[in-house]
Amino acid sequence: MKRPGPLLTLLAGLLLGLLTLTLDATAGTRNSASSSQEKPPGPTPTSSTASPAPAPAPSASPAAPAPPSPSPSPSKIADASYAGRTDDDSSSVAVSVRDGRAIAYFCDGRSKESWLKGRVLPDGSMRLTGGHGAALNGTLQDGSRIRGAVDLDGGHYAFTARKAVKGSGLYRATATVRGAKVEGGWIVLADGRQVGIVDREGTPSSAPRIDPETGAVTVDGQPLTARPVLP
């Protein structure tokens, strides 16, 4: 029998090569399929942090209340003079008002008198004071009269003084007569009556009449002029 020769050896080599090629092809196919099935790594997802909700707009501050309207200033007290009698008809009272100030004269026409002064408040009230604790408390009413009372030497004298008309009101004269200081005060009422005292160095007595038109008066033989009193 013939021994296998080189031909058999060649066939065996070819078969081995073919088997090797088949295995390599199979492995390549599997690697390719496996590679196609894997997804390429995508970008790492970043956790989206929700942006904070916008802060609410601050509410507008309430508007400050409008300042109150200034109170109307009180009416100015009119300049005028007032004259009248006490309720018991024992004495007279005159008050002269000017620029918010007042001067008053209380007189019984014999020996009791007092000059008082002070301010008039916007509501028409007044408190006037004089020597030896004398005081006048009164109120201007309707601009036509003053109602009040004078406290003097322990007495209380309620009075009503009405707005003076031409020729009436409060008068005063000061002079030196025969070396003595003389001071006189007069209240002329609307009906023409006059009440006054002349003080000579601290000694009071009834005053002579004056001429309301000119203020002329004669005291101890010497002519003087009594002038309207203004604060």
Rank of each mutant, 00 (worst) to 15 (best):
Thr214Pro: 00
Leu121Glu: 02
Asp123Val: 11
Ala63Arg: 11
Arg119Val: 13
Thr9Glu: 04
Phe106Ile: 10
Val93Tyr: 05
Trp115Asp: 08
Leu18Phe: 06
Lys39Glu: 10
Gly185His: 03
Arg193Thr: 14
Thr46Val: 12
Leu7Gln: 01
Ser35Tyr: 13
Ser48Glu: 05
Ile103Phe: 01
Gly131Thr: 14
Tyr171Pro: 10
Lys112Pro: 02
Ala216Asp: 05
Val95Trp: 03
His156Ser: 13
Ala83Tyr: 08
Gly215Leu: 06
Lys117Gly: 10
Thr9Ile: 14
His156Trp: 07
Thr44His: 03
Pro65Met: 12
Ile197Val: 12
Ala57Ser: 15
Ser73Lys: 14
Gln222Asn: 09
Leu16Tyr: 05
Gly143Leu: 00
Gly143Pro: 00
Pro62Asp: 08
Ala173Asp: 06
Val93Leu: 09
Arg127Met: 12
Ile77Cys: 06
Ser81Pro: 09
Ser32His: 11
Val97Leu: 11
Pro62Cys: 06
Val217Gln: 03
Ile197Gly: 00
Met126Ile: 05
Ser71Gly: 15
Leu14Arg: 03
Ala158Trp: 05
Ser69Phe: 15
Leu170Lys: 03
Thr22Asn: 09
Ile103Leu: 10
Pro65Ser: 09
Ser91Cys: 13
Ala27Lys: 04
Gly5Lys: 11
Thr160Arg: 01
Thr214His: 04
Leu230Gln: 03
Gly221Leu: 04
Lys163Phe: 01
Ala50Leu: 07
Gln222Phe: 03
Arg193Pro: 02
Arg227His: 04
Ile210Arg: 04
Ser36Arg: 15
Arg178Leu: 15
Arg119Leu: 14
Glu213Thr: 09
Val150Met: 08
Ala207Gly: 09
Leu136Phe: 12
Leu7Lys: 04
Leu152Thr: 15
Ser114Pro: 01
Thr203His: 05
Thr203Trp: 09
Asp88Val: 15
Lys166Pro: 08
Ser69Asp: 12
Leu170Trp: 02
Thr22Ser: 13
Leu7Phe: 05
Tyr157Phe: 14
Asp151Cys: 08
Val120Gln: 08
Thr9Phe: 07
Ala161Tyr: 02
Ser205Tyr: 15
Gly138Met: 00
Gly215Glu: 06
Ala149Met: 12
Leu170Asn: 02
Phe106Lys: 06
Pro231Gln: 02
Pro58Asn: 07
Ile103His: 04
Leu23Arg: 11
Ala161Ser: 00
Gly179Ile: 12
Gly155Met: 09
Gly84Ala: 07
Ser32Arg: 11
Pro204Phe: 01
Leu15Pro: 07
